[in-house]
């Protein structure tokens, strides 16, 4: 059971990517390897001129039924019992990429230089220090929020267009749909 989750308010995400830069610098994710724990995915729904455009900031959704954890043959991926954060132990990772193939969200990514997987930790070090994850902490418009899933459930919904069926892995992400 996940304690924490992310909420994306689609009416507020301006695709500025501050979240990604914050993620990259706080977690020291190497550049140049196409390893991007958090990304903004631009969406355009409808047909001109009746269109709705918005960004969706997306990283690992720390699913309650995480397919990556189930697929991992080495025990490198595991759920932290206390709060449900899905963490990768790089020492155990054998780089088989099974997790990559089963994740609907592209969260575990292969670092070809290290020959190991790499993924969002929900900034577990910051959470343990009583802080927000770096991404939500810097979001200028408040489009990306972090909190307890029970609170986020009151603010948002589980599904938006083009998002993988949530019943599959029970992801810890909620959305405030865009009006109009």
């Amino acid at each position: 059971m996940s304690t924490y989750g992310f909420l994306v308010d689609l009416g507020l995400c301006i695709s500025c990517s501050a979240c990604e830069a914050a993620c990259k610098t706080w977690n020291n994710v190497p550049t140049g390897r196409n390893v991007r724990w958090r990304r903004v995915i631009d969406q355009v729904i409808g047909v001109w001129p009746q269109v709705s455009a918005y960004g969706v900031s997306m990283a690992c959704n720390h699913c309650a039924d995480a397919s990556c954890v189930k697929a991992c043959p080495s025990g490198a991926l595991a759920v932290r019992a206390a709060d449900g954060i899905v963490l990768l132990d790089k020492a155990k990772c054998i780089g088989c990429r099974y997790c990559e193939s089963v994740c609907p969200y592209g969260a575990p990514q292969y670092d070809a230089t290290e020959k190991k997987m790499s993924k969002c930790t929900m900034c577990v070090d910051r959470i343990d220090a009583g802080k927000q994850p770096a991404c939500a902490d810097t979001c200028p418009t408040g489009a990306l929020q972090f909190g307890k899933l029970v609170d986020l459930d009151r603010k948002g919904v589980k599904q938006i267009p083009n998002f993988a069926e949530p019943s599959y892995t029970n992801p810890s992400i909620r959305f405030v749909p865009k009006e109009g």
């Binding site: 990604e20 830069a21 914050a22 810097t138 200028p140």
Partner: peptide
């Protein structure tokens, strides 16, 4: 780097350019 909350420009937030 992170924003300075008491400053009303960024209000503790920074954009991608600043964060990088």
């Amino acid at each position: 780097v992170e924003g300075l909350p008491e400053d009303i420009q960024g209000g503790g937030k920074m954009c991608a350019k600043g964060k990088a």
